[in-house]
Amino acid sequence: MPRLAEAAYTEQPWRIHELTRDFSVEDVWSFRTPGAGPGDFPAMLAALRAAGGPMQQSWPTRSLFALRWKLGALLGWDKPSAGVGTRVLSLRDRLPDDVRDAPRGPDDAAMPLKAVYELDRECARELANKTVHTVMHLGWVQGADGDYELRMAVLVKPNGWFGRLYMAAIAPFRYLIVYPALTRQWERAWRDRNQAEHEEGTSR
């Protein structure tokens, strides 16, 4: 199963740990990338960007995100005053010098989470609104079969009781709709990348 125990994240020597001691681990997920090697994390990130953001997923997932953005606009959850740099400080303000000097990673209008940092085998993005400050961490880990695989951890710091209620309310939708669709999209992105490389190699 793609969902992993929290230890699959906490036991890795990620740089993100030193930045998020006041966050809790909400989810840990794995994505199969057959044939991947230790240096393929940048290629995987490129494949994910080519696959597009949430609105490139299945119809149920697109509908959920569209509903969430409409509710946010109606109730004022996503106002700039509730975001990163206003209600909460960006994690970039916590970066040690060696990580701060590394490439940040590109921001994209299709991806509402904004880049914090991007290293050879991990990267982080963040989002804040009136409900929560959340971080999506991606890491590159060697699996039991020897291939490398992508792992995602979602870290959260709810904004008071309302944020905790919000996270509890959306949990069934994440597990039943969003994460399964994300798994299909991201694993397909890796397969498509491999297929494109194979076709390019055979045409030479």
Rank of each mutant, 00 (worst) to 15 (best):
A110F: 05
Y9T: 02
G52T: 12
M111K: 03
V132F: 12
H17N: 03
A102W: 01
N159S: 12
L91M: 06
T20K: 11
P103E: 08
L113K: 03
T86D: 15
A181N: 14
F162N: 06
R3D: 07
D108M: 03
A46P: 03
S90Q: 06
G201H: 08
A7L: 08
V99F: 07
V28I: 03
T134W: 06
Y9C: 06
I177V: 15
G83T: 08
R104W: 05
L45F: 08
A73R: 12
P103K: 06
M44T: 08
V141W: 06
A36M: 03
P2A: 14
V84T: 13
F23D: 10
G53L: 09
K70Q: 07
E200Q: 09
V141K: 05
G143W: 06
R92P: 01
E187A: 04
L48F: 15
L113I: 02
A47P: 04
A7G: 05
P112V: 08
Y175V: 11
W190I: 02
A82Y: 11
L45E: 13
E197S: 05
D93C: 10
D40I: 00
A109T: 07
Y175T: 10
A5S: 13
W14K: 03
R204F: 01
D147Y: 09
D120Q: 13
Y117T: 09
D101Y: 04
